[in-house]
Nucleic acid binder design. Structure first.
Lengths: 246, 246
DNA sequence: GCAAAAGTGTTGTCCTTACACCCATGC
DNA sequence: GCATGGGTGTAAGGACAACACTTTTGC
């Protein structure tokens, strides 16, 4: 019997007629969304943290998170958290991974889905600083609440990989930026040093940087040109990547 | 005030002393694990499916899934499902993504975490064929239950990408395989045609294929050499990939 | 005029691609 | 001996890495 195509109904199967009765008997767990919000400032990659409001973790930093509501899409929950905490709505957001270890939360089983977000620190002044909300340099995190260190590590790895195959990084920069800023960003995220000339050639050859005609100011050296990212050009020219390499 | 290092306790915060009381008040949801188990046979990529036992989906195929138990790690749940359904324990397994749309399950809110698994069809004869468990060619899925089409699509995309940067594919092949089989695998998964000579050069240059001294048999042409994957060599030589390209 | 960073080109190397012929086996 | 796929080498082109000097601005 070949199953390459749909077959007729199977015989003698005990069918479940009430889907809601079935689901009603499932064990249930609490689910939260945690937002790993990256920013870039002073040539350092930063992440948005608050002080945990759990007493046992009160000397530790924590990610921005909240429970997901019964009828709320998780992505909406992530946007809600972002909006509540930073006042921003139109930001990059992507699901990265789910963390489900039984013992990850001291209050019982809590599953969390990590969403990653990248935004420009200057353009998104924090309107609320409750719970000591602040940008924290990724290189000096110290002890973190829950498994948030692990979550950040995963998201950072994700970012390192993703930024090399997708033009995410521009979300971390002002709309108009110099090539130096762009390079600093890549160097900070990938933790490498890159050759300035080759870096320029690379990005110019990809042909989605648009010369704004403007220049840096307030720098105490020769000002660099400011560029902006041309999304339309990127979409048109982006290559589909095939290359076995490991 | 600089937050690059841990600060002292914050003043006047309403601290939560009982973590379990907090979690007790969270809304709870049902969570399942769905396994997307890829196999390779007759030069086709296949996926392991059963007939849905929900009446409303009974003319549709479904992934192997089950609820996660209150004190069960999700990965263990995935292994449990694999073991129960295929009899296998020592297989490749990786979390891919969580699917949480409010309306994805007709019986109420059910979150599912997709785990991807790759295994060799010949080495894992299906011991149980309840619910018409069978390998289904990925190219002829037809209508699927729930959002399982979407889950499979995601996992397939994940596989396509992952196989190019990590030697996953060997999990789909017998321990000893010919280069032709390896190439067929890559061609099937990536849906491209590759030059045989360049493919060989590429893999030999990566230097983790070990000549077993054995040959194919039962073929009606010149038998090819059989190779095996040398994990130790791979681990030693694997390159850390840096290359901005999009 | 000095410091600091912007801006620019060339060369060699390596990797990738395209391509054609002989070889071993089954029938 | 013929059909089928296994096995190999080479040459051209493109991408990447390494590298040094001139230019512009602030001070």
């Amino acid at each position: 019997m070949s199953y390459d195509h749909k077959t007729a109904l199977a015989p003698n199967m005990p069918l479940i007629t009430s889907a809601s009765e079935l689901v009603g008997n499932y064990p249930k767990m609490a689910i939260t969304v945690d937002c790993v919000i990256f920013g870039f400032e002073d040539n350092k990659l930063k992440v948005l943290l608050i002080r945990s409001d759990l007493q046992m973790y009160n000397d530790k930093w924590s990610l921005l998170g909240d429970v997901t509501l019964a009828n709320e899409e998780f992505e909406d929950a992530a946007y809600r958290i972002l909006k509540t905490r930073t006042g921003m709505t139109d930001v990059y957001l992507e699901q990265v991974r789910t963390f489900s270890q039984v013992a990850r939360h001291p209050g019982g089983r809590v599953i969390t889905v990590a969403y990653c977000s990248l935004l420009n620190i200057r353009h998104h002044q924090l309107k609320i600083t409750d719970n000591e909300l602040h940008w924290h340099s990724l290189s000096s995190l110290g002890d973190m609440a829950f498994d948030h260190q692990q979550i950040i590590d995963r998201c950072y790895n994700w970012l390192q990989k993703r930024i090399q195959e997708h033009p995410l990084g521009f979300n971390l920069l002002p709309e108009k930026f110099s090539l130096r800023e762009l390079q600093n960003l890549y160097e900070a995220i990938l933790n490498v040093e890159l050759d300035r000339r080759n870096f320029r050639k690379k990005f110019f050859s990809m042909d989605f940087l648009e010369d704004t005609g403007e220049f840096e100011f307030d720098v105490k050296h020769r000002p660099g040109k400011l560029y902006q990212f041309n999304f339309a050009k990127y979409e048109k020219n982006k290559r589909k990547w095939i290359g076995i390499d490991f």
